Simulated assay, not measured.
Amino acid sequence: MSSSDETLWWIAIVAGFVVVLAVVALLSLLIRYVRVIDQRVAGIRGTLRAAAANTRDTALIPETAGRVDGVLAEGLRHHLFLGRVLGKVKS
């Protein structure tokens, strides 16, 4: 084998080694990014579950609003009644 052939082989070996190192570096970055994405997805999943638990009883809001309106209406009737009664007593 001539000297130029040997030099070409060494260049090919070094280039292959550089390619292998680049592939290892890129795969390491990919694995790291996938782990970060997985952790963030888990965090988002937890947040969404907490939000779902937080809003589970929102169906009760209209019913509660109706009952609060009823209590306020009853309070208004008492206020008007007492205003009429106390107004007659002062006169």
Rank of each mutant, 00 (worst) to 15 (best):
F81N: 04
A53R: 11
A65C: 12
L48R: 00
A53G: 08
R32M: 07
S91Y: 15
A65P: 01
V19L: 06
S28C: 11
R45T: 02
L86A: 06
L82H: 12
V41C: 02
R56M: 10
S2W: 15
L21M: 10
V14W: 14
A73P: 00
L82N: 08
V68Q: 01
V89L: 04
R67M: 10
V34E: 04
L80R: 06
T58Y: 15
D69R: 01
L82T: 12
M1D: 12
G87I: 03
D38I: 02
G87T: 05
T55F: 01
L26N: 06
Y33D: 03
A42P: 05
A59I: 08
R32A: 06
T55A: 00
R67F: 15
I44Y: 11
I61C: 03
I11L: 10
M1R: 04
R32S: 04
L21V: 14
E63N: 06
A25T: 00
D5V: 11
A73K: 05
V41W: 03
A42S: 07
G43K: 00
A25I: 00
G66S: 09
N54C: 02
W10P: 00
L80K: 03
T64D: 04
F17V: 09
G46V: 00
E63M: 06
A51F: 10
A22S: 03
R35D: 01
V18C: 01
V19D: 06
V23L: 08
R67Q: 11
K88Y: 15
L30R: 12
L72E: 04
G43D: 05
V34F: 12
D5Q: 07
V71A: 09
L29I: 13
A25Q: 02
S2T: 12
S3D: 15
D38S: 00
E74G: 10
G46A: 02
A53H: 12
V19A: 03
V34G: 06
V36D: 03
W9G: 12
R67C: 08
V41K: 01
S4Y: 10
W9S: 13
W9C: 13
V23G: 02
V68F: 03
L8F: 13
G16I: 04
E74M: 12
A50F: 15
L30V: 11
F17C: 07
L76I: 11
E6R: 03
H79N: 07
G83L: 07
E63A: 08
S91Q: 14
L8V: 13
T64L: 11
A53N: 11
R32N: 04
D57A: 02
R49K: 07
I61K: 00
W10Y: 15
R49T: 09
K90P: 08
R45Q: 02
R49V: 09
A59Y: 09
K88H: 14
Y33I: 00
A12P: 06
I13A: 03
A12K: 11
T47R: 04
L76E: 01
L21F: 10
D38F: 01
V18W: 01
L82S: 06
T58Q: 13
L30Q: 14
A50H: 15
A12L: 07
T58A: 09
G87Q: 02
R56W: 15
N54T: 09
G75Q: 07
G87C: 01
A73G: 04
L26P: 07
A59W: 14
V24C: 09
V36F: 13
R32I: 06
V19G: 05
T7M: 08
W9R: 05
R32F: 08
G43L: 01
